[in-house]
Computed example of a mutant assay.
Amino acid sequence: MSVRTATADDIPELVRLREILADRMAQDGSYPIESDWRQAYADSLKERLGSDDTAVYVVDAPEGGLAACGMGLIFERFPGPSLANGRCGYIQGMTTDPGHRRRGHSRAIMARLMEWYRDMEVRRVDLHATSDGEPLYREFGFVDDGRLYPALTWLDPS
């Protein structure tokens, strides 16, 4: 198995894998899924692939298409006492096609993402986990950090 950087040719498969993840997240009680997200997602991928603040890694399926993917984003916040360079990361879209699970694809992608974050001098990375993915993320050192203030979210009710 080889992890590689995604290209524009992978966008249709990245959208397909994101749809699998959305369905899985709904099982854990996720937010409602909007009907017109696919094109916006594809457009955003096309714009961000290859940028300095985005890493998208994939594993090819032997029969064609993608077996798995994972994405890392870097955000610039104001520097502060606990984040002197202001750089923080977010992992999104970690998905393995159901026919390719339990083969180490997500683990290999996570290792590559964490290497990228270290190379980019990002010292804080957040993510939201499904119940399926949580054990893997904990293996990489992700924790419920009781030192942090509560994570609160606002969603436009309209």
Rank of each mutant, 00 (worst) to 15 (best):
S2E: 14
R4F: 05
R4Q: 13
T5N: 12
A6H: 07
T7M: 07
D10C: 11
P12G: 12
E19Q: 14
I20S: 03
L21D: 05
D23N: 08
D23Y: 06
D23P: 00
A26M: 14
S30R: 06
S30K: 00
P32C: 08
A40M: 09
Y41I: 01
Y41G: 02
Y41F: 15
A42M: 06
D43N: 14
R48M: 14
S51W: 06
T54V: 15
A55K: 07
V58T: 11
V58P: 00
V59C: 13
D60G: 11
A61I: 07
P62D: 12
E63F: 01
E63K: 10
G64Y: 09
G64H: 10
G65N: 07
A68H: 00
A68G: 03
A68Y: 00
C69Q: 04
C69D: 02
M71W: 02
F75P: 00
F75S: 09
E76F: 00
E76S: 03
P79C: 01
P79E: 01
P81I: 00
S82G: 01
S82V: 03
S82K: 04
A84P: 02
R87F: 07
G89Y: 01
I91C: 02
G93A: 06
G93Y: 03
T96R: 04
D97G: 05
D97E: 13
P98H: 05
H100Y: 15
H100D: 08
R103E: 15
H105T: 10
R107N: 08
A108C: 09
M110T: 05
L113T: 13
Y117T: 12
E121G: 02
R124E: 12
R124T: 11
V125K: 08
H128Y: 11
T130W: 11
D132G: 01
E134A: 15
E139H: 07
F142R: 07
V143S: 11
D144E: 15
D144S: 14
R147W: 03
L148C: 09
Y149I: 01
W154F: 15
